[in-house]
Simulated scan of single mutants.
Amino acid sequence: MNMIIQDDKSNLGMIEISSEVLEVIASIAVTETKGVHSLQNNFASGNFEKIGKKYRGRGVKVETEDNEVLISIYVTLDTKGKVHETAENIQKNVSQAIRNMTDHVVKEVNVHIVNIK
Rank of each mutant, 00 (worst) to 15 (best):
N47A: 15
L12G: 12
Q6D: 12
F48H: 15
L39V: 13
N100H: 08
I90L: 07
Q96H: 13
K107G: 11
K82M: 08
T31I: 15
N89A: 07
G57D: 00
G57Q: 03
S45P: 15
D8P: 14
V62N: 04
R58L: 15
S95Y: 03
V60M: 09
V30C: 06
I90V: 01
E88L: 09
R58G: 11
V36H: 02
K82V: 09
A97G: 02
V94F: 08
A87W: 00
V36A: 01
S19I: 15
L39C: 04
K117G: 10
V75P: 08
N115I: 09
E32R: 07
K80M: 13
I4P: 06
N41G: 09
V105C: 07
G46T: 03
V69Y: 02
K53A: 10
K117C: 09
A29L: 04
E65I: 14
F48L: 13
I5R: 14
I17F: 10
S19T: 14
Q96G: 08
V94E: 02
N100E: 07
I71R: 04
A97V: 05
M101G: 00
Q96M: 08
D7C: 05
M14N: 10
E108K: 12
V109D: 04
V62L: 14
T76H: 11
E49V: 02
I98K: 03
N47I: 15
K117E: 13
A87K: 06
L77M: 04
S10A: 07
K53D: 10
D7Q: 10
K53E: 13
Y55Q: 03
T31N: 02
K53M: 11
H84S: 07
A29M: 08
I116C: 11
V114G: 06
V62S: 02
Q6S: 14
R99D: 12
T102M: 05
K117W: 14
T33Q: 01
V30T: 00
N11F: 12
V62T: 07
K92L: 11
T76C: 05
L22D: 00
H104N: 11
L77C: 13
I51Y: 02
L22E: 01
I5L: 07
D103T: 06
G57P: 01
N67R: 12
R99C: 02
D8Y: 02
A26E: 00
